[in-house]
Amino acid sequence: MKSLQGARAVVTGGAGFIGSHLCEALVAQGCSVICVDNMCTGEPDNLAGVEQSPRLRLIRHDVTEPFTVDEPVDYVVHLASPASPLDYLRMPLETLRVGSAGTENALRVAAAHQARFLLASTSEVYGDPSQHPQPESYWGNVNPVGPRAVYDESKRYAEALTAAYRRTLGVDTAIARLFNSFGPRMRRNDGRVVPTFIDQALAGEPLTINGSGDQTRSLCYVDDTVRGLLALMRSTAPGPVNIGATQELTVREIAELIAGEAGVELRTVSQQLPMDEPNRRCPDIEMARAVLGWKPEISVSEGLRRTFGWWATAYPQG
């Protein structure tokens, strides 16, 4: 795989949860990074660890509007998009635009510089799957007109556009499908299961479970997610490649783990299952193992311990 030392990468959505961790990792490996983010869901503070580095430059810009880069570029990583249900249900049109116009603008930068382009897609392209675990060959089961479709279909379109740029224009592209990443820098009001449960547990509140809580998720600690993205960046593989953990947990089991880490008795309250919420989610990662030599290394328990440690500093109680 190629070394990142001396390379330059453009990272859209680089001030977000995963994006900021990726920017840090790239800078640590000697890569110059141009972070492009309109702070729609990102936070400048997420980049505090590298904001003084001469290898990081932050540009506030909405990638649904065209942009150019004057310097040579080796990599373009497109992470920009609302990713939590609360965000994309609040901003449905913006989510569709960043998956369509935003993806094409990022692809155009890659094409102009003959750079490798990496799309951060999502397990949500599989919808509520009828095949389990989900291999990359599975085409999915998505409701194209439901409320979640603004995210699911924007990513499916982004994948189609990325593949078309590869076939038609010869752009060196890759697609990563990310599964349920968690860790430090998730917003407390993010709406996804891990930050919601942590915040409720530390506040002494009942944990809110959608439906029966028997639906499953596969939680991948953010450091492992970033290692997978870096491996795919540096490879020649086009993907799609699943990047996620294979330990399948019910939402109720996740609640038990988080209550235990918080040192509180598990109390729950149920609410209606949202429309089109997937019942099962777990990746087949044999392609990532074979092509990238990648697999998750950090257990859910260890990842939660690290996340709680960060949470106590970021969101002190009281």
Rank of each mutant, 00 (worst) to 15 (best):
I254F: 02
F197L: 15
N180C: 07
T122F: 07
A164Q: 13
I243T: 10
A149L: 05
T307D: 09
P278L: 04
A160T: 06
Q131H: 09
A9H: 01
S137L: 12
V193W: 04
R227S: 12
R192I: 08
R90C: 12
E253T: 10
R177M: 07
S20G: 01
A80Q: 07
H78C: 13
S299A: 00
D172H: 11
N143T: 06
P240N: 11
V33H: 04
G49R: 15
R8Y: 01
G170C: 00
P129K: 11
E94H: 12
L292A: 10
G293L: 09
Q200Y: 03
V10P: 03
E248Y: 00
E256S: 04
A7D: 04
V10I: 13
A110S: 09
T122A: 14
A7F: 00
V150D: 04
A7S: 15
K2M: 05
A163V: 00
L304C: 08
G183C: 08
G211N: 01
T168A: 06
Q29C: 00
M233P: 04
H113P: 13
Q200F: 04
L96C: 14
N105E: 13
C23E: 00
L207N: 06
V300Q: 02
R108I: 06
I209W: 09
S121V: 09
P92N: 11
L266N: 03
L229P: 02
G239H: 09
S235F: 09
T313G: 02
S218G: 05
A290P: 04
E43A: 05
V269N: 02
G263S: 08
P82F: 10
E124R: 14
A15C: 14
V73Q: 14
P72T: 13
G183Q: 07
E297L: 11
P316L: 06
G6E: 08
A314Q: 12
F179S: 01
E51R: 15
Q272Y: 03
R108T: 10
E302V: 11
V11M: 05
L304Y: 06
R234Y: 03
V251Y: 10
M287I: 15
G260S: 12
P184E: 15
A312M: 05
R185I: 07
G204Y: 03
L273W: 07
E136R: 13
A164Y: 04
S100Y: 11
G293W: 07
Y138S: 12
P135L: 02
A262T: 08
Q29L: 12
C35D: 13
G303C: 09
I198H: 00
R188V: 12
Q271F: 01
L79I: 14
